[in-house]
Design a protein around this nucleic acid. Structure first.
Lengths: 199, 199, 199, 199
DNA sequence: AATGAATGAGCATTCATTCAT
DNA sequence: TATGAATGAATGCTCATTCAT
């Protein structure tokens, strides 16, 4: 992953270091060393350590948004679109544990650390889910009783908690495909036996 | 919530302080002041700051486990049991934002911070979900194609992400009841229109 | 060494602990544990940590003074008296390394730590040496050109530095007897070959 | 004594502060202030407080070794060589009380404080004494019954205890010259009256 | 007299940030 | 632009001492 310029070299280095040590345990000098620049150089591109955190997060999520949207552009069945989102998210998290950890940890801290920080990129990301759901509702594929604003969080939360385990234990019990299928099955059809729907 | 002794006074104070400032920004002296004890007193009851973190987490989750299990003991329909779990979890998180934040943040950090720390209490907590699912599968209420080990994470993740928002923004768009119903609807019946199941 | 009362139990415990860890690294609780009393009890017998240090020092040196004086009382040849002093000192240091270390370290620190502290006991101890020398001078056994005030320090310093090594390395190259004889030979006759005295 | 660079500025400042307050009572901030650098700067040059202690000790003793060896190079009479050593040691201690105190105190503590620390410089220093004695023995100037390994300690100990007093009381009863002559007289000819040698 | 839980002042060390070069 | 030496504020933890019992 050749960095085009110093700014992105630092972003990539920070992603790696934050993932490995967590934001608080990461040292500016760790990032500088990883990026092969001097400590002071970092301050030519970022205001402070928090600024790096936000930038890393937005950069990574932004890249994910672009990729997911590109994949979705070629599809119009809301069922498959949800599958595409899930598979892309889980694949990205599994491939890039650094990214997964940064999302895991930083998502839960930015709000606390940085007043006035709105996770706009993150909102954009999970709004992809609600857009798909709304589209499905318009097409009478998804039930209109479902609140897209709640469902998007439930869906993202499910994917996120599953990928969290991947960052903790190396043991990967399930493949991305299996996991994607399971999550989709749950979300699309629920866990009830068809015959057990009513009681 | 008057603490019976110093140990629990400190636990409660730490829960409050960790929730407000996050683990890293919390100062031992903040906790001491909140608990109305001297800084040094904390070290009569805990080995170090991490030890407090773990204790807070286990204490809070442990209490939740007891409460949930008690509620579940009176019920045997797996559908209702899942509803009970969801409602209890969301209610607890909404009522006690400190607890919600501590779970949110600390769950994602303990593993990284403390080698050898196994979230046994947390495992016990989400295993309640998989137990319910297994029970439902035995009763042919839940589909056997569902992997309880994946579903428990998906279900917890969904609840967790939803309650995360409550800790971030004060604006509470949905009530606990609405949210519980939505999550249950999704999990039990999925989001598909019955007619759209096949394609 | 059965302690008659708490005061001496604490003194003995402190001697042991100071020797093992040094004054600054010794904890009051270490001494309390060694003496099998509560921490607070120590403050019923001593004003503070420094007070214990001084007491230990004076107690131990005091005991040495009594023993040495007793041995000297039976002798009147200044040459043998010096030998008795040297042998007693080295034997005591070799037998009781705790004592040796306490003298080693504390002798060098008391003055710095405790304003107004005069090592009266220590002065009394090394003045035994100068008394012997003066006695020898009166008897025309020792040369009158020797200044007892300098010689006492030289003699004590020699013994002290030799016993210092015993507290550092376990390897004991020379026996007490050999060492005593060497030191005496040097002090009494000097290191010059008789023929080489003039040049 | 203007320090050429930060490292030696800190060494000199530490020597001063350790001498004044003792190692344990010395604060890093005291040293920093004395050296006119920031507290943190000290850690760019030393690993920790102990490391400063060792460095100070070795630096000072090392400097003494160089000076003494230089003086000795021009002389070959073992009697005069011993005089040179004594005079140089006492002069240095009297002139630089900081140095004297650091040797006094630190010599007795390093072994206890720092595992694996071997006082190599100190060994080198007192081995100068035994070398002189051995040389004298080869030239039949010093008696071969004298053990250089014991005599070196006795000689150093004598000098050291004498200079210890200088660091404690300001009152200087004897001059360096007088003291040197006394110590030499004792060591070379002993304290016995020539006629009293046999008994 | 004896206890030991509680206190809180005190400090070595770290590390984000600056700035002279 | 880039550097990295220097800064100094900030804090977890220790432990001598106190005091209610």
């Amino acid at each position: 992953m050749k960095a085009a310029n110093k700014h992105s070299k630092i972003i990539h280095a920070a992603t790696k270091v934050f993932a490995k040590k967590g934001f608080f345990n990461a040292r500016i000098s760790d990032i500088a060393k990883e990026a092969k620049v001097a400590d002071g150089t970092i301050y030519l591109y970022f205001n402070n350590k928090f600024d790096i955190l936000i930038s890393v997060f937005e950069e990574e999520i932004g890249s994910l948004i672009v990729q997911v949207k590109k994949l979705l552009a070629a599809e119009d069945d809301p069922r498959i679109m949800l599958e595409i989102f899930a598979k892309k998210h889980l694949t990205a998290m599994k491939k890039n544990k650094n990214l997964a950890e940064v999302i895991q940890i930083e998502l839960r801290q930015s709000a606390k650390l940085i007043k006035d920080y709105r996770n706009n990129k993150f909102s954009e990301y999970i709004n992809i889910i609600s857009s798909i759901i709304k589209l499905g509702q318009e097409q009478s594929v998804y039930r209109t009783s479902i609140q897209p604003g709640i469902a998007k969080r439930a869906f993202f939360g499910a994917l996120d908690e599953i990928s969290r385990i991947w960052t903790v234990s190396m043991a990967t019990e399930y493949t991305v495909e299996e996991t994607t299928q399971q999550v989709l099955e749950i979300f699309l059809s629920g866990i009830l036996e068809p015959d057990a729907k009513s009681r």
